[in-house]
Amino acid sequence: MSTPSRYWREIPQRYRLEANKCNRCKLIFFPPRLLCPECKNRDLEKTKLAEKGEVITYTIIRVPPAQFSDQAPYAVGIIELKDGVNLTGQIVDCAFDDIKIGMKVKLEFRKLFEQGHAGILCYGYKFVPD
C-alpha cells in the first residue's frame, strides 16, 4: 500500500479539476504538465475544467482490479467536456442500458475506492446524467 503522499499530491486535480491552459496556443489540458503537449510552450496558467460534457465512448467493467472488486459491475467512459478536454471516469446513477454515446453528463464528487479496511479513503470525480 502506498503512503498517502501519492494520493495527496493529486488532490487539486481530483477534487477541483485543476488543469493548465497554454498561454500561447490556448490549449487546455489535464492533468497539468510542465509544458504544453501541443506547442511545448512553458508559459502556462492554472484553470479549472468544465464540469459538464458528453459521453464519447464507454464500457461496463465486469472484471475489476482488486481495489474495485466490491463495485463491479460499473461503467467507465471517456467524456468530452465542454472545454474540449477528454476525461476518463466512471458513469454512475443510471442504468447501464441508459448510457449512450452522446449522453449529457456532469461531474459529481464521489468516493472512488478505499485503501483496504484501514487505509485512506480515495475521493475524486465521477459522472452522473445531466
Binding site: D70, Q71, V92, D93, E108, F109, R110, K111, L112, L121, Y123, K126
Partner: peptide, 12 residues
C-alpha cells in the same frame, strides 16, 4: 450508493 458518504454529499 457505496461511493457516497458524508463527505461526498457535503461537497455536492
Amino acid at each position: 450508493s457505496p461511493d457516497q458518504d458524508t463527505i461526498t454529499m457535503s461537497v455536492e
